[in-house]
Write a protein that binds this DNA or RNA. Structure first.
Lengths: 145, 145
DNA sequence: CCAAACCCTCTAGTATAATGGAAGGTAACC
DNA sequence: GGTTACCTTCCATTATACTAGAGGGTTTGG
């Protein structure tokens, strides 16, 4: 069992923020010592690191909460949890492909404007337009009957 | 040339928010008609869609601004822009792999807890932990300097 | 013993990212 | 010419996610 300060250093999240996460239900209420100090376990550290990872990726506290629920509620109604998890996985995969799309936009930028001072670089005209190069196939190929 | 309402509908972003983006420098100041109405072009629509994509992915307004700069400043100092773009691409790739890590966490959840009511499901013990290699945690950190 | 470094709760303030509403001008249609 | 749907600016408010500070108790070490 460790105090909040140690946990704070281990997860690189301030003690204030840890208490805040507790107040909004992201972190569970920990056991208390006789002195009233919060007593954390190794699992709390992992939880906090999970939260940190997800927050860093731009998931809102509420969204992280949803992911956390999946994670903590895994002991009961596993079938439901599994379904919800698959849903979240799907959303994350969409997110990944959108990121890939933005990456592709930027890569095209660097490839088209390859270090000289050419005045035009028609990225907008054919790349960002229509969502991205990655989705241009939507226009050009049928893909679905 | 289109008015803000049309642009708003095309990009699925409220007129209020478009003006807000203008006020914080994300959207360029558009031309004005004789009536003072904002006059937008096709490119503004693309710009707005780029902003929307990036914001949806959790990039802050400032970060989106950085991406926008790359995009709009491509006409001058292409070499520098290229370097900065490569940097951003790198960051985005890191982001993608972090997302993949979270996805892996969730996939493992569904695989381990495969729909029955088994009480334990040792995801924490070997999965989320694996992300951060420093699990030499409880070896009592120094508490005083 | 006492100071420094912890910890506690509670309230308030900040930054970000919008969103709402007032007050009024403009454009389109009947 | 009136009504409705636009548009304008400016100021206020909301929601989210912390962050700071007051005021006070606890633990550790010289």
């Amino acid at each position: 069992m460790i105090n909040i300060g140690i946990l704070s250093r281990q997860a690189d999240i301030s003690a204030k923020t840890i208490r805040y996460y507790e107040s909004v239900g992201l972190m569970p209420e920990p056991a208390r010592g006789g002195n009233g100090y919060r007593q954390y376990t190794e699992m709390d550290l992992e939880t906090l690191r999970f939260i940190r990872r997800a927050r860093d990726l731009g998931f809102s506290v509420k969204e992280v909460g949803d992911l956390m629920k999946l994670w903590h509620d895994r002991n009961r109604a596993s079938a439901d949890v599994r379904a919800i998890a698959l849903n979240h996985i799907d959303e994350i995969e969409q997110r990944i492909s959108k990121l890939k799309s933005i990456r592709r936009t930027l890569i095209n930028l660097t490839e088209r404007c390859h270090g000289d001072d050419r005045p035009d670089c028609p990225i907008l005209d054919d790349l960002v337009k229509g969502e991205s190069a990655e989705t241009r196939w939507l226009r050009d190929s049928p893909r679905k009957g």
